[in-house]
Design a protein around this nucleic acid. Structure first.
Lengths: 152, 152
DNA sequence: TAGGAATGTTTACCAACCAAAACATTTTTC
DNA sequence: GAAAAATGTTTTGGTTGGTAAACATTCCTA
């Protein structure tokens, strides 16, 4: 049970590291820095902190890898992110703006709220009450999997 | 368009100060500290920072008052907050939890997203988009008379 | 394989915010 | 109109998380 949610910054790192691992198979310090718009020294320090917290295995100069716990946390974060993406698409926020907003809020939403959001998305997607006066239908959005979001 | 606010912390201060002004007619350092769960020294420093930024008039030991710009920013913040409260209530998040979540996310939502949220709330509520404003009666006089700023 | 290029790390520092303790001022009370 | 109480401010210091510059290591290539 990953009791430690870590800071919002730490969550950003874990999220990106996990994404990099999935798409490229590895995550170098400079990759992470590039993704987050930060400088290598910042990443180096945070990586060491995350290692100390048990979220990843780290060897000086040699790279890093998420631990099982780190992966679990990252998956939870990405699930959250996916719910928010679906919600923002549903209500018609432009994708570029949605990304910015989501980045800001994703670390501050409780499980309860996320559950309600998910219900809402599902409900509105299954009802024709979706007004088509707005562009950006949800169908345009995901290059991601439509997300069934099974537990764990 | 005032060159947008300051930090998220600054927005919290402005929001509470404005609310105190409305309900009590004044906002002392200790009042603000109490509302925000902070200590007076923190408030004292931030108040000076906000004064320097032009959001309020401040006189050492004598009190503070929002400037027109400060009031404008605070109103925007509170309107945001109100939209979020209605939205969270609508989707069924318990009020206590909603407050916590809103506190976390309110500083990170764009005008676009807030507009969409407002539309959604109105649509699902099947009610017009104008909240009837009624002011709370100010009561609870302070044991200490609130200092007045020397003119403007 | 030597040495420069690329990458990673350490060091030293900065900025925002918060708080405890010490100090200052104002208000209240006797 | 003191003295005491309440309130406000400054000083000092901690935490987090960022950067530039200097340093270290690894990679790569001539």
């Amino acid at each position: 049970m990953a009791a430690h949610p870590a800071s919002t910054a730490a969550e950003d790192y874990l999220e990106r590291i996990h994404a990099l691992m999935e798409t490229k198979g590895y995550a170098r310090v400079s990759d992470i820095a590039g993704e987050l718009g930060l400088r290598p020294p910042s990443v180096s320090l945070m990586v060491q902190r995350l290692a100390k917290l048990g979220y990843l295995d780290y060897e000086r100069y040699r790279g890093l890898r998420l631990t099982e716990e780190g992966r679990a946390v990252a998956r939870r974060i990405q699930r959250r992110h996916a719910i928010l993406e679906r919600f923002f698409a549903l209500i018609g926020v432009r994708r570029s703006q949605a990304e910015k907003d989501i980045e800001g809020i994703e670390h501050h939403l409780s499980a309860e709220t996320l559950g309600r959001l998910e219900e809402l998305v599902d409900r509105l997607n299954n009802s024709p009450a979706n007004p088509s006066k707005h562009r950006e239908p949800a169908a345009l959005q995901p290059r991601r999997k439509p997300a069934k979001l099974t537990k764990t």
